[in-house]
Write a protein that binds this DNA or RNA. Sequence first.
DNA 1: GCTGATTCCTAGCACCGCTAGAATCCGATG
DNA 2: CATCGGATTCTAGCGGTGCTAGGAATCAGC
Lengths: 191, 191
Amino acid sequence: MSVHERKARERANRHQLIVSTARELAETHGWDAVTTRRLAERIEYSQPVLYSHFRSRNEIVGAVALEGFAELKTALRAAVPDGPADREAVTALAHAYTDFAERNHALYDAMFSLDNGLPFADEATPAPLREAYQALLDPLQDHAGSDAPGLLVETFWAALHGLVTLTRAGRMPADQVPQRLALLIDRFIPR
Amino acid sequence: MSVHERKARERANRHQLIVSTARELAETHGWDAVTTRRLAERIEYSQPVLYSHFRSRNEIVGAVALEGFAELKTALRAAVPDGPADREAVTALAHAYTDFAERNHALYDAMFSLDNGLPFADEATPAPLREAYQALLDPLQDHAGSDAPGLLVETFWAALHGLVTLTRAGRMPADQVPQRLALLIDRFIPR
DNA sequence: GCTGATTCCTAGCACCGCTAGAATCCGATG
DNA sequence: CATCGGATTCTAGCGGTGCTAGGAATCAGC
């Protein structure tokens, strides 16, 4: 029965090849350049092969996004030292978040801007999403005071996301991001 | 020379018809449904006519967005009473902003999410954009304290924008928007 | 009523996401 | 080893997209 195993392994490899190629193409030329034709050509298979792995182009975006959530979680955890979740921890967290978005434009878009079909805040939410959320929550919940920690995280996260997207889209000057982050933390986290 | 005037008037009317039709189509069926073919059919002209008014589909989005900025400014001004720009004024401002986004999905997308070709924070920024920004700034600048008012406005705006987009995209539960707004104001505007 | 410029439409380009059905491959069996 | 049959993959095509070249129709000015 090892033939089946080999086939399954090859399928899994090709699956990952599709996701990696889509991600690379998106990161270098934007998601608009990730067409099924171009993607198929890059992996050296025909278009219909893509549809034997994913139901739609959106589902490929979702697969890339999933990688993103795992990496975001890692980046946030790495930036925040163990120990007390003080103001500095929150500062590190915020910078890690915006740095991640800046380093991975296409990945960030797949996670938060494009339609990726992933369920959020739902019983079916995949583990990487929950874990990234948790990595955001942990350093913040000690600063919730009388507010619900969930509300604080979501609002703080929304502010970060707003800064990231509006800056990236040219809606606000890009040269003062650190100052805006400092202001955000200053107001959000009482001394 | 009245013939030229009539023609110019007719052209202007048709220009507005295109913008209004695009907006209506976007608001009822989403921007994806605003194709040049469908739009042309609705205004009862052929596709190339659109391109005698706008250089591209994006430019039509931009024209709709411009209407949006004028209306946003009006909505914000109407919500904030004259007089001292206290906490309540900021609360009214924030609610007016999120209400506007909620009432005009497609319009909001045209203004802040889609590529509309409009220059932001630039010497060529159109008046409606500046005025909407100013309507956001006025009630906030008294609460800047030692921070630059511009930074405060941009950061506060980013938070509002993040809440609006992440909620609309299903990235966070929609049933606690008022609580998040309250938290935002509570932390941003010192008592 | 004719003429020349303006206005507008038909038709088409290259591309898109997606899929039906034919062709090919290849493991299992006699 | 040859054949069969199911899994795999490809070719070809559908209906759609934004955008445009070039010809037809219209209409103001003489």
